[in-house]
Design a protein around this nucleic acid. Structure first.
Lengths: 186, 186
DNA sequence: GGCCGCATGTAATCTGTTACATGATTCT
DNA sequence: AGAATCATGTAACAGATTACATGCGGCC
């Protein structure tokens, strides 16, 4: 019962995505993230770090736990989403990523879970990300032009970003083309 | 006199670049990094962190210090490069950046200092970075193709990287075109 | 009077990584 | 016999961030 202060949209909200479809235990999540496929391609979490994050999510009231005893093994700690957890996940997964360094990890993680939730939500995520990228592109482009001829290095820095954002926008188109193809796996 | 173990090419080697042209003190470096131009556009270092890094560089034998007294102000601690420091900087600045997340910060920092050292070294840096990027591009491209049709998400992840690397390669061309234009500022 | 610039840091805190610990079972 | 898998973590350390501390001079 901690005060529901959720400094919004941190990376650990992604973990809630694993619990959205059905409850699981930490080791299972670790296994999925250890594969070099799916989200494991993008997000690497050490085992102890993962357990710590899950404990933190419990402490914040996004998940509750239940022990599932086993023969000859330590009992599994099954994590269930609370209503607050469900809310936090849905908010996180649908919001576009603002800034550069977060794009790689955060957006790809959002996309991963959005795809599991269905085409509508995925479509919306992509569309909002496109808008965010275009805004950012305009800013960088404007700054690049302002520095053209006077500050060559600064201009190159902005040009670099412009190139990366344009590539991202093209890639978002590709995402949308691939979307309709729904496969059970992947 | 610590054993000259320099775990190679960490970001703090960039600081040596500020000392290469002439010795300076911490606050001066901080001022230059606080501007929203030049390297400050790319690399943000908090003041106390900066002092800690400089102390570390001294401890490792890359710089020596000398106190410059002032009236009514705390004395400046002037940092001078040692021979080991000069070596470390030159090695750092000329080596290309291997992997994705380091590209933004590390390469742009290298480029910043390389430009001050002259066209030859800059040209070489760009060329080596191009080679590194092409290798990386081939790897990602191969993996993307292998996943095409079977693992849509994994394919998208690799396609994302392919797009970013291609944009970087184009941008490296731009860098080379701009290079001959040498301006005292920027 | 209060804030900013100069110039240095230390101390406390938060975060992340590495190493260690348990204990039965199955694989080589 | 030794290693890996399952399933949980704790403890120690390293790195980074935030807050705090000093002390003078100039600006509004």
């Amino acid at each position: 019962m901690s005060p529901m202060v959720s400094s919004p949209l941190t990376t650990e909200h992604a973990l809630l995505g694993f619990l959205y479809q059905q409850p699981t235990h930490g080791y299972e999540i670790h296994r999925r993230l250890s594969d070099s496929e799916g989200l494991g391609l993008v997000w690497h979490v050490k085992q102890n770090k993962l357990y710590a994050l899950l404990a933190k999510l419990e402490h914040k009231g996004f998940v509750t736990t239940e022990l599932e005893p086993q023969d000859n093994r330590p009992p599994r700690k099954i994590f269930h989403l609370t209503e607050a957890g469900r809310q936090a996940f849905l908010t996180w997964v649908q919001s576009p990523v603002r800034h550069g360094r977060k794009l790689r990890l955060d957006f790809l993680a959002k996309l991963y879970f959005a795809r599991r939730e269905g085409q509508t939500i995925t479509q919306q995520l992509i569309e909002e990300q496109r808008t965010a990228c275009r805004t950012w592109l305009d800013e960088e482009y404007a700054q690049a032009e302002a520095m053209r001829d006077t500050h060559p290095y600064d201009w190159l820095v902005h040009e670099f970003r412009v190139g990366q954002i344009k590539a991202m926008l093209n890639w978002l188109d590709t995402c949308q083309e691939v979307l309709p193809v729904v496969t059970p796996k992947g």
